[in-house]
Design a protein around this nucleic acid. Structure first.
Lengths: 189, 189
DNA sequence: GTCTATATTTGGATAGAC
DNA sequence: GTCTATCCAAATATAGAC
């Protein structure tokens, strides 16, 4: 609440923190207002559509941040370094497993609020970037897609389990294993 | 609202459905009341502590159901059959990935409501059962623990991603892969 | 044990001054 | 652009009849 100058990015970052921590339904305008450091009316000035518009704006904001990361990754030629870059970004985003995933939290309200499309888009984007890396490492397209899907599954699951167990180590171990195994050649079965 | 006789188990099952679908904050007494088929006052008669007590009761109810499954699993001697039994139960519980995980949903409110202990207990229980199966299949204790942890990570993650993508196939593929790989001998690295 | 009715609080949203 | 004050609806919870 201190910062007197709140740029739009800062505002969005803080609203994002509210939704991440409490979920869409658990985050009230009251608590968001306090966290952002702006009164409710000021929030409505920036987001006339209220809480729902805030959530959509936050999702778009997250997507923008991810796109920047993706651009950096694409500029890197080595597959393993690509992977490390993206997992570093994910590790930082969730602060080593101490913070929840916005997408998972908003997903809980997907039946009542219209988050379906942006949520799906974000996951799809992440998935195709990971699949690209897998293919660059020499894996076939179907295997690459499957690996990418399971990587995201494991990242999301690790965040859920880390939070429930109060143990960020779960997340750390999961990321570490992805780093060493995601690009390994396929061994068939 | 049909069932005129609502045994406590039925009531708990329906409340559980409410929390699974909408999360703790998203489930209102109004919607719970409708789903259960009892008026709000009747709910308070059964759960004087209100919504929070309902959630705790539902968690205890889930634990009881899991314990019964665990007992059946323990009676089965073959590791692979043990695994299949437990994954069948999980598949049924989440209806092939179409239903969300109560634990993940309640985890979103863990900072405001006191779910930490029961949540952790449930995950720990599931984890130790899976680890037992892995050890019975010949894996060492540390490997078994790690495999069990990652199995739960993947199950939870698959539920999150399936819901967000609107594709239960993610869950199905994840379970299928766990069936064929969880008990495989360790290959070192 | 369940209901109707009501109290109380909180949450989302707006009006209008500065 | 931000604030204070306020409105209205919804949510939690209780009282008391049956």
């Amino acid at each position: 609440m201190p910062a007197p100058l709140a740029t739009r990015t800062e505002v969005l970052d803080r609203i994002m923190e509210s939704f991440r921590k409490d979920g869409y339904d658990g985050a009230s305008l009251e608590t968001i207002s306090k966290r952002v450091g702006l009164g409710k009316s000021s929030l409505y000035h920036h987001f006339p559509g209220g809480k729902e518009e805030m959530a959509h704006a936050v999702l778009a904001h997250l997507n923008e941040g991810l796109r920047e990361t993706f651009d950096v990754v694409k500029a890197e030629p080595h597959p393993k370094k690509k992977l490390d870059l993206i997992l570093d970004a994910i590790d930082a985003l969730y602060e080593g497993g101490k913070k929840a995933c916005l997408l998972a939290r908003l997903g809980a309200s997907v039946d009542r609020i219209r988050f379906g499309a942006p949520l799906k888009a974000t996951f799809s984007g992440l998935m195709s970037v990971l699949a690209d890396i897998c293919r660059a490492a020499g894996l076939t397209a179907p295997i690459a897609r499957h690996r990418a899907e399971q990587a995201i599954v494991r990242i999301e699951g690790a965040l859920v389990v880390s939070a429930a167990m109060g143990d960020p180590g779960v997340f750390a171990r999961t990321l570490a294993e992805l780093r060493t195994t995601l690009l390994l050649p396929d061994r068939g079965r």
